[in-house]
Every structure is written in structure tokens, then in C-alpha cells.
Design a protein around this nucleic acid. Structure first.
Lengths: 193, 193
DNA sequence: GAAAAAGATTACCGATCAGTACATTTACAA
DNA sequence: TTGTAAATGTACTGATCGGTAATCTTTTTC
């Protein structure tokens, strides 16, 4: 049981689900796009939902790792790193193939709150918010959870409007609002990169 | 050609699409849920996509009417009315059957930017932002479009986190951030209702 | 080099997909 | 009362849905 083949499936399935949606993508489409036979898929995952869950888990880990690492690269101070979230978002928005947040899509397509896929999507947001809360605490915010939650609101809003509106306007306004919030919450000036 | 029957179809189709998604809802499901025969449906709309477009148009009009009217009811000053957006959102979040924004879902399920359904969803956000811009101008904001866009970001973010996280936390933080933004942009104090 | 594990191939299952054909019923207007 | 159009029920199309079974080929492992 090589893990590489399974990872390859999950990674390619992510791209198809991300671009075309979960319900709109059939297993036969995945066979065609990935070149992996259906038998092999169902050896690794007994249902389509389990494959989707595996895709969400992989994306969750990679997405959070990438964002936190890049935020730390772009600024020195904790407060600056929080603001840099919106520069990382900016980079992401302008990548080729960007079409929104996989977890927002998952939450939208699997609305039932008891559905494991919905739960997994919600979990991603919860963990991310906890990471932001830790950063806000480091930055000396009066109410770290409060600041982190407000930045989360700005982040999700920016993503939605990047898809349905103007990327640059969305990120500019989200970042502007974030700067005001961070400065108000920490009492320190933060320079926009 | 009575318009009431067609409206009834669109209205009931909205509820099913809203709750279960577009791709996940088949035309046979709509027949079962609405009690309207498939033949009648295809008399009014020649494709499923056209029905979806009609649903979006109806929802767009009713949603914007309701929100602007309720915002005006809840506050007297223009600035207060803008902040009241988040009280109206709060009411909406706690309605039975709330499960997010139909236009965010439409934009997520129909990702192609040239798809008429995606265009229609984006148009809803654009018109709403124009309405907010007019209100921000009335409220004396230095840069009305800037304030309106920032409030849009907060609104969309609150909706996403109301679905995938905690409704009360989302609305509390969005409103708190909005108050700071409105006061900064207009230079006047705004009381939270 | 042989056993065994993994993958591919192909064909298939019943159910559902969007959409259509057609004959029947309802409702309203002349 | 009759003519007409809207609305209906039923049955159907070919395609696709998620998932399975059996057979064959490749790769790994001892």
C-alpha cells in the first residue's frame, strides 16, 4: 500500500471538485480526469463522500500551513503578521485557477449541519480562527478571540466578493478595515506592507 | 396565462433550491415538492437553468426590498440605518430555515464567470453595494463607495460564518467592526441598537 | 522466479438526471 | 354549449449517477 497513489488521487480530485463543484462532479469524471480506475478509487475510499472528506482534510492542512507560514514571512511583528493575512489573500486571489474557498463551497453544497462534510468544513474555519486567536494574543490584543473573529469575518467576506465581485476592491477594503481593527485592538500602529 | 401560477412555481422552487442546492435538486424533486407537473414547468421555463435564473431574480428583488425597508425602520439617522444592517442580518440568521445566502451558493455551484447564473448572482451583490453606497453618501461618509464596500465585506463574512460557525459570534463581531468603520468614515458617533 | 498484492479493464446494476411526446383533463370565454 | 388553451398525468428518451463484480495485467515482495 503505497501512500503516493492515494495522495495523487486525493490531490487530483481536489482540483476537479474545486473547479466544478462536488455534486456536479461524477466519479466517472474523476476517472477520466485522474486516469485512476474506479476500482482503485473504491479500494481507497468506500464512498464518494469519504473521498470528499479526504480532499477536505488535505486541503485544510495545506491551506493553513501555507497561510500561517506566508504571514510570518511577510512581516516581523505579530500585529504586522495579522495584517499580512490580507496580502497572502491577495496573492491567492490572483493565482491562476483561483475560484473561491473549498470549505465555503462544501458548506454551501452540504447544508445539513450533521453531515460529516459540513462538519469538516466548519472545523477548518474553527481551527483557523484558533490560530488567529493565538496570533492576536501574541500581538497584545485586548480581546484576542474578538480580534481574531473579526479578522475571520473580513477574510470570508473578501473571499466571497473576490468570487462574485472585484478581487482588488475586496482585498483593498478588507485590508483597510483590518488595519483599523488591529490598531484599535492592540493600541499600536501597524504599517501596511 | 395567469402570472400567479408561475410565481408559485418560482417561489416554491426557491425553497427547495435554497435548502438542498441547485445541482442536488432534480426536476422530479421539484415536481414532488411543488405539486406542479413537469409539463407545466417546461411550459414556463425551457430549461432548468432558466428556472434557476427566475428564482434568483425573484429572490434578489425581495431580499433587497426587505433589507433596505427594515434598515430604515430600525434607525432614524442614515449612519444608524447602515449599522442596523447587522440587526436585520441578526433577525435573518435566527429565522427558521435560514441556511446562508442563495447568491453565494449560486456563485459557488456555478463557478464559470460567463455562466448567466453566476453573472446574475454577481449582479445581486453589485446592486446591493450600490444601494449601500447611496446610504453611505447620505450618511456623510468621506468615501461612500469605500465604506459601502467595507460593510459588504463584513456582511458576506458574517453570512459565511453564520453557516459554518457561530451565528451570534459572527453577527456580534461584524457589527462591532461595522460600528468602528462607520464612525471613522463619517466622523459621527453611532449608537448600537 | 513464483506468490501475492495492486491496478486496470470492461461491463454491469438500479436509480436518477434533464428534457420530451402524447393523450387527457380542467377552466374559461364566446 | 361549444371552442380553445392551459394544465395535467403518464410514460418515455438517452445519458449519467454512485457503486459493484469478474477478469486480466502489472508491480511488488520474499
Amino acid at each position: 500500500m503505497r501512500p503516493s497513489r492515494r495522495d495523487e488521487l486525493v490531490r487530483k480530485a481536489f482540483h476537479v471538485f474545486y473547479r466544478h463543484g462536488f455534486h456536479a462532479t461524477g466519479m466517472d469524471t474523476l476517472v477520466r480526469e485522474t486516469g485512476i480506475s474506479k476500482t482503485t478509487m473504491y479500494n481507497y475510499f468506500s464512498t464518494k463522500d469519504e473521498l470528499i472528506l479526504a480532499v477536505l482534510r488535505l486541503r485544510d492542512e495545506e491551506f493553513r500551513n501555507r497561510f500561517t507560514r506566508r504571514m510570518q514571512q511577510l512581516a516581523n511583528t505579530p500585529a504586522g503578521q495579522m495584517l499580512a493575512l490580507f496580502d497572502v489573500l491577495d496573492e491567492w486571489f490572483h493565482e491562476e485557477g483561483f475560484c473561491g474557498c473549498l470549505f465555503i463551497k462544501a458548506g454551501a453544497e452540504f447544508q445539513d449541519h450533521s453531515d460529516p462534510i459540513h462538519v469538516q468544513a466548519a472545523e477548518h474555519k474553527r481551527v483557523l480562527q484558533e490560530q488567529f486567536t493565538a496570533m492576536a494574543r501574541e500581538a497584545g490584543a485586548r480581546d484576542p478571540r474578538d480580534l481574531a473573529s473579526k479578522l475571520m469575518v473580513l477574510k470570508e467576506g473578501a473571499i466571497v466578493l473576490a468570487v462574485l465581485g472585484n478581487k482588488d476592491e475586496a482585498i483593498r477594503n478588507a485590508k483597510g478595515a483590518a488595519q483599523l481593527l488591529i490598531e484599535t485592538a492592540t493600541g499600536q500602529q501597524v504599517e501596511a506592507a
